[in-house]
């Protein structure tokens, strides 16, 4: 499951998308919008067609690199309020060590190479979020 959506992410559905009988571990990562000072939401701008393609390639590379069984990535686009999930990654593997490793690696890659940009939305100002 590779998706970019403007609505709230159904975490249970993402987890279910990677369930397999030969998996002994599922690792789930939720990236959530943090309440920094003056931040009420983050606005995510997405180059949709390239982002889907890049995420799909990432999932393939993760399977090859870590020998995991299934990987799903769902990312939000548009405005995401504080407290909501902006990205959900679920990774199924035979054993937990490769599932943890793959999930962490995928999230780092998402932050580096997927064409998604975020801007802070506060009470009265908009600015690019500092790293």
């Amino acid at each position: 499951m590779i998706e970019i959506q403007r609505t709230r992410i159904d975490v249970e559905a993402v987890v279910d998308s990677v369930r397999r009988n030969d998996a002994g571990a599922i690792v789930v990562f939720l990236g959530t919008v943090r309440a920094d000072p003056d931040v009420r939401a983050l606005d995510y701008e997405v180059y949709q067609s390239m982002a889907v393609r890049t995420l799909t390639e990432l999932a393939t590379r993760a399977r090859e690199k870590f020998g995991i069984l299934e990987l799903s990535i769902v990312h939000r686009a548009g405005r995401v309020p504080v407290g909501e999930d902006s990205v959900v990654i679920a990774c199924a593997a035979a054993h937990r060590s490769e599932a943890f490793a793959a999930c962490s690696w995928v999230m780092d890659e998402v932050k580096q190479i997927v064409p998604i940009w975020k801007t802070e939305a506060g009470p009265a100002k908009r600015r690019a979020r500092r790293p």
Binding site: Y47, M50, D108, K111, Q112, I113, V114, P115, I116, W117, K118, R129, P131
Partner: peptide
């Protein structure tokens, strides 16, 4: 052709 600014980044 797309001109892409650096993506979000962020701390680990």
């Amino acid at each position: 052709v797309a001109l892409l600014p650096p993506v979000s980044g962020g701390r680990r």
